[in-house]
């Protein structure tokens, strides 16, 4: 078969089948090692099982590694024998504080092209390691799930992300939120303290952005009530009412749901009530072309 055809063919072969093809004959063992593996939508690597490393490429899993130099060398050799390059749409990393693991992973993926590099980060050490991996993929997009609140200086030094999620019990200030909003495309932040001026700044920012953006926040119910009252919105506001450029689109008190619009920006409040305890309201600010789904049954 023509060489150009074989190289094209190898871009359509699953990783697991490349492993089998290595066993067919010398010529195909070489072809596997020296051809592009094509594109895979997703890959995942985790080192959270003690002393094990779990790598998923497409529909193929690689599991278990001892951190001895000999074994590491063997694994790197296998990865280098499977393809010369590979393209991954989204690669998610969940690597613990083990520096050997990070160093191994960096070597392992040195010939990867990755569209979006995603991280789940539980500690400062893991954040530092994630930044090392990011430095190897400067042309990729990034996403990050932060399960702790880093020092503000380090948080603000992160590169721009497609999506930054911060899951923490620590409260995030309004000022920090506005800075993060300017840096990252999509945000998912828990326990935010926000004032009406900064909330309106966020709404105007999202509305004016040509990119499709979504900002998901958890804000104390009383804080949201205070913001809405500052805009002139009240318990008696109904769909179609305008408060300057802010329009009430949908109100369903029984479902604790309210939709508002500001120019191109939709604002959704879930678990919202004008009175009650201090639970968190789910606030979504988005300029997605599609309006928030309105269940016709409500």
């Amino acid at each position: 078969l023509p060489d150009v055809f074989l190289r094209k063919l190898m871009r359509n072969i699953e990783i697991k089948d490349r492993l089998s093809l290595r066993l067919t004959c010398h010529a195909f063992e070489n072809l596997v090692a020296n051809s592009h593996a094509g594109h895979f939508e997703a890959a995942f690597i985790s080192s959270f099982t003690p002393d094990k490393l779990h790598l998923v490429l497409g529909n193929t899993s690689f599991y278990g590694i001892e951190w001895s130099n000999e074994v590491i060398e063997q694994r790197l050799l296998l990865m280098n024998s499977l393809f010369i390059n590979i393209s991954i749409g989204e690669f998610d990393f969940n690597i613990d504080d083990n520096f050997t693991a990070v160093s191994f992973v960096r070597d392992l993926i040195s010939n990867f092209k990755i569209g979006t590099v995603g991280f789940r980060v539980d500690s400062k050490c893991q954040l530092d390691n994630s930044l090392l991996i990011m430095s190897d993929f400067l042309n990729s997009n990034y996403t990050m799930d932060l399960c702790f609140l880093p020092e503000t200086e380090q948080l603000l030094s992160l590169p721009p992300m497609e999506e930054l999620c911060i899951f923490t019990r620590s409260k995030i200030s309004s000022e920090l939120f506005i800075k993060l909003l300017d840096m990252h495309k999509n945000l998912d932040l828990g326990y935010l303290i926000i004032n009406s001026d900064d909330l309106m700044t966020a709404v105007r920012t999202v509305s004016a952005d040509t990119r499709q953006r979504e900002i998901r926040l958890k804000v104390e119910r009383s804080g949201i009530v205070s913001c809405l009252r500052d805009y002139g919105v009240s318990e008696d506001s109904k769909p179609g009412d305008f408060y300057d450029e802010l329009e009430i689109v949908h109100v369903k008190k029984i479902h604790k749901l309210m939709h508002l619009r500001f120019d191109r920006c939709f604002i959704e409040l879930k678990r919202f009530a004008w009175t009650g305890g201090d639970w968190n309201v789910d606030l979504t600010i988005s300029n997605a072309e599609q309006k928030p789904s309105l269940d016709p049954s409500i």
Binding site: R22, T60, Y63, Q74
Partner: peptide
């Protein structure tokens, strides 16, 4: 063949 199978063994499925 035995050597390649040994290398491939990292793959679990």
């Amino acid at each position: 063949l035995a050597e390649i199978r040994k290398e491939n063994a990292w793959c679990e499925n």
